[in-house]
């Protein structure tokens, strides 16, 4: 029988990061604190694979990631260890199991990588990722990631605000939405070959233009000071921290500015369960489960580490984007 600690405000022992470590965490990371990285990983096999993947990344990308600066906002929450961030993923292109992506995504070829920019922009075209990112200052952003399945992580991303990219691409006055498409190559992606995922490939996501232009909206190319591992959506993915994780589309090959609201994968699959907006909202339950709380990972057998879910995942600064909207209706 488990005896539960009933004082909800008392910090749990594994939540506490020693202050000395906390204060030095950026230095540790910037020094390429591989020691910390290695000790966090459970299996030698996984370590070696991750290192190999990083070694094979193009030099320009590694350089640019290494030169990332601290970006606001920051958080004092404990980071989810690298091994968990890269070992526990929803990336159905590589299988529906949480460990499938880490096991299967090594078949993804991320270099060279091109992104097609289309629709209501002055500068459409097919861009090499390097050209798209050229001259962009990358930032490290520590964001909470809240999955619609009621678990969450805290992840130090490296990326560029989407707004900085869009400004260069020059949306026309007609542009009202941004539509994103993931790579869907059955040759490289085992989940795309599988008939059982229930998903109509390619994976699609979208944002309203004002959401896309919000300074919090990030296009990530790295995490933990390194380039993105394949299973985390390499080489180029969206991160929208105030929305459920499925909005943050991975391995993007197409960005289209549109006049009308684009179709989005989970909304197409189950419109009554997953809306276009998908803002984190403890007041609007998933039809099948509660969204009022979340398990902050990693947790343990003795403590599921429930934390209350906050509106907009705690990013209150985005609330003004939805002024006057009924968020129960536009979930």
């Amino acid at each position: 029988m488990i005896i539960r600690h009933k004082d909800p405000s008392a910090p749990k022992s594994h939540e506490i990061t020693p202050e000395s470590v906390y204060l030095k965490r950026r230095e540790l990371m910037m020094l390429g604190g591989l020691a910390g990285l290695f000790s966090a990983m459970p299996a030698w096999g996984r370590e070696i694979k991750a290192v190999d993947e990083e070694a094979s990344r193009p030099l320009w990308l590694k350089d640019q990631v290494a030169r990332a600066i601290d970006g606001a906002p920051d958080t004092d929450e404990t980071l989810t260890p690298y091994a968990d961030v890269t070992g526990y993923n929803n990336f159905y292109e590589f299988g529906t199991g949480k460990t499938d992506p880490a096991e299967n995504a090594h078949t993804l070829k991320t270099d060279p990588w091109t992104v097609t920019v289309a629709g209501e922009v002055e500068k459409p075209g097919t861009y090499a990722l390097e050209d798209l990112l050229k001259g962009q200052q990358l930032e490290e952003r520590i964001y909470r990631l809240r999955c619609v399945e009621a678990w969450s992580m805290v992840i130090p991303w490296v990326g560029v605000p989407l707004a900085s990219l869009l400004i260069k691409l020059q949306p026309t006055s007609k542009a009202r939405y941004v539509a994103f498409t993931s790579l869907a190559d059955p040759k490289q992606m085992s989940g795309v070959r599988s008939p059982f995922t229930g998903i109509d490939w390619p994976y699609r996501e979208g944002l309203r233009l004002d959401e896309a232009m919000h300074p919090l909206t990030l296009m990530a190319v790295g995490l933990y000071g390194r380039t993105l591992p394949n299973q985390n959506g390499a080489p180029f993915r969206l991160v929208v921290p105030w929305k459920y994780g499925f909005k943050s589309i991975k391995s993007i090959v197409r960005i289209e500015l549109t006049e009308t609201m684009p179709e989005t994968t989970w909304n197409m699959l189950a419109p009554d369960e997953y809306g276009f907006y998908a803002n984190v909202n403890p007041a609007v339950d998933h039809p099948r489960w509660s969204q009022s709380r979340e398990r902050r990972l990693p947790n343990s057998f003795f403590d599921p580490n429930w934390v209350p879910t906050r509106p907009f995942n705690g990013y209150d600064e985005v609330a003004s984007l939805y002024k006057g909207m009924d968020l129960g209706k536009f979930y």
């Binding site: 260890p81 070992g87 526990y88 949480k98 678990w151 398990r295 990972l297 990693p298 947790n299 343990s300």
Partner: peptide, 15 residues
């Protein structure tokens, strides 16, 4: 698996 800590970052849920 549970004793060896092999059930991932959300072990109770996985169990």
């Amino acid at each position: 698996q549970a004793a060896g800590g092999q059930l991932g970052p959300d072990p109770a849920e996985t169990l």
